[in-house]
Design a protein around this nucleic acid. Structure first.
Lengths: 140, 140
DNA sequence: CTTGAAGCTATAGTGGCTGTAGGTTGTATC
DNA sequence: GATACAACCTACAGCCACTATAGCTTCAAG
């Protein structure tokens, strides 16, 4: 039978076979056609959509956001504002995460330094520093 | 009966009651004493340990790493190297995450800009850009 | 002694998959 | 046409770190 098997889709997109079936269950991919024996066969449209999903996932969109983006693709009129909002929300989220991670990094570097050069007999200050939030210089 | 109730521990540490019980199930907290009626009663040692766990979680350590750090606290000899390794691993992980997030941010900013100022009649380039990984400037 | 907040256990759900078990189908080769 | 075997199928359990719910019991203050 013509059409791409699920394994071929997987190879083309880098998305695992089980994950493709999971996306179908989540409604991100339509029910594909089946062979007489019940195996899935896909066309190029499904391949494109799966590529879209895979790429959006790599950019960190969650499946709900991706579902929304797909819906926008289906109704191209006036999709600009919504698509931008979703993408901009994601940018804000990413910037937030970066800021928080930077604070954590600074704190941990400080913690590790606090103990460097200590002799083996004493209790480790890394452990003390972790026990004592008061000692932190920035909140996290 | 003397000792702190689970609710008091929760208030002191900011860790939810259900989460405290979950930590107990995971072996991060010992089985506490119980009242005649079966309610948990904690001493100061447990409060300290829970504070340690809470702080380490805020710093992004996973529960396995925390279990390891707790074990190091119990055997203070030669704990330096191990504690430092765990903390340094975490720093590396954080730096990695920051680097990846920065690439994502740059990519998304580019995607959003690619469509700014487009008229409403055309299909949105944000959606196109998401569909087409080839168009990306950095890998992610 | 009554009231009601706080405690208890057990179980299911979250997100985004991954892994397993146990069976069936498609295709290439003989 | 037979056979072998990779690839496919469904259904369900597990991952992490919790969170939520239901339905019950206990503690402590008034």
């Amino acid at each position: 039978m013509q059409g791409h098997s699920i394994g071929l889709l997987s190879k083309r997109t880098g998305v695992k076979v089980t994950t493709i079936r999971y996306y179908e269950g989540r409604g991100l991919l339509p029910d594909p056609g089946r062979t007489g024996g019940g195996q899935r066969r896909y066309g190029d449209a499904e391949l494109d959509r799966l590529s879209f999903i895979a790429h959006a996932r790599q950019l960190g969109f969650d499946l709900d956001a991706i579902a929304e983006l797909i819906a926008l693709q289906e109704t191209p009129h006036a999709a600009h504002g919504d698509a931008h909002r979703i993408a901009k929300d994601r940018i804000i989220e990413i910037r937030d995460r970066i800021a928080r991670l930077r604070r954590l990094e600074a704190e941990l570097v400080r913690v590790v330094k606090s103990c460097d050069g200590q002799s083996d007999g004493q209790p480790c200050r890394v452990l003390n520093a972790l026990a004592d939030h008061q000692a932190c210089e920035s909140e996290h």
